[in-house]
Design a protein around this nucleic acid. Structure first.
Lengths: 232, 232
DNA sequence: CGCTGTGTTGAATGCCGTCAACGTCGGTGG
DNA sequence: CCACCGACGTTGACGGCATTCAACACAGCG
């Protein structure tokens, strides 16, 4: 059974796509499921495909030769990822791991040209995505240069709830399981420091957190922490 | 007098460009000189042009709202910069400052499409450049997370001599004036720490340095420092 | 000849990583 | 159903690396 075009027509990357073109775009694509904690692709593996996340959350991880890891970003539903082809790369620069059970659409690299010509604004959207990730990564370098650990961690948690938050009665919760270690790997810190700070924030009523769960109950207060102006 | 096409035909970004196309490509371009320490464009300024560095070196600087600065990268001769248009941005994300007297070619953003269609591989080259900068920036985040200051500074100096080095009888010298403060802003450190480390390296005969000058006399030893295996 | 930008060096402080030990939750298998 | 085990989380104590603070030296320039 062919993939249904309703999967993609309302995504920003495919804006302005006509019905028959949508079918043609989906023809070379395959959809697959990835169970939680399985790899969609692996760092340094030859890049043969690019991907669109239909449902779930993907963690993008870079590993040093010495085996230390860093979480480059999380991918949300509807986002492109693994687009090495758009950067003229032959290998993936990082691994992509399902943070929860995921459904993914995969195209062979050869379809890139066709998508660009068939979908108005597809190329521009993809390159804008890369540009945004470059900006974001540079901001992260600045953060690591100029801000202390507490401000960085507060900023990272804020970004997570903004990009991947889900409203609950207690506040905004990060919509996928995330450990202290994960937050440490996003901020260049350690799970110990993250744990200490989150405990302190819980004392102050800014967050509520538990096993692989983080809920921000007072985003404004957390912003003040991120800016190092915490009412002191 | 029109610009001479010999300026660009041998650059990788313009590979495969025929003679008459080269003239057409250069028609909308303007060349200008920028004296040392003057700004080519300014962070958050509306991006109306993109640039090619014909001669000199450009420092790309990001500034936080609090006024702290970071050097994102140095641009070498023949490189594109200020290509906000390729990332769908309307403002420049950083400032570009001439590190020495520079000559720059500037196109209005409207010429981007024409260059892409007229020059085979121009778009691919530009997007590859952006991809490389994204990789490089992510590597920098990893470095700041996992390596200590001494290793980061050694790595930064090595990159500078590799990308912008000039052979001298004493060793390889960084081809533009660079202060301790500049190196600190590239590595998320302070001029004090940089000064101490460079003094120590000078003791060990790894570098020779002076006012705004850095010469690496023993690149291999510096690599060992960068990898934290300095013969200990 | 003073002034500004750059570089050097010493001393002290403190952030946060490291080491260590323990507590807790959830899944799994008998 | 319960016991076990591994993954995750918490907390205290300690210490080191790098920043911060301070003072001085030196070069280039008007």
């Amino acid at each position: 059974m062919p993939l249904d075009k309703s999967l993609i027509v309302d995504l920003p990357a495919f804006a302005g796509l006509s019905g028959e073109d949508a079918d043609a775009v989906l023809a070379p694509a395959r959809s697959s499921r990835f169970a939680k904690n399985t790899e969609v692709f692996s760092q340094d593996e030859e890049a043969r495909q690019f991907f669109l996340l239909l449902s779930g959350y993907i963690r993008v991880v870079r590993t040093t030769p010495e085996g230390e890891q860093m979480i480059a970003r999380y991918i949300n539903e509807g986002e492109l990822f693994g687009i090495a082809v758009a950067m003229g790369r032959t290998t993936y620069p990082a691994s992509a791991i399902a943070a929860v059970d995921c459904v993914v659409l995969a195209w062979p690299n050869g379809a890139w040209q066709d998508l660009q010509s068939r979908v108005p604004g597809f190329g521009a959207n993809a390159y804008q995505t890369i540009g945004e990730r470059l900006q974001e990564t540079q901001s992260r370098v600045m953060d690591m240069s100029t801000r202390q650990v507490e401000q960085r961690i507060a900023g990272a948690v804020l970004r997570l709830v903004q990009q991947s938050g889900r409203e609950t009665e207690e506040g905004i919760e990060i919509d996928f399981p995330i450990s202290r270690q994960d937050i440490a790997e996003m901020t260049g810190s350690t799970l110990h420091t993250v744990s200490r700070l989150m405990s302190a924030w819980e004392e102050e009523g800014i967050v509520r957190s538990g096993r692989q769960k983080v809920t921000v109950t007072d985003p404004h207060a957390l912003m003040l922490v991120a800016e190092n102006r915490k009412g002191k």
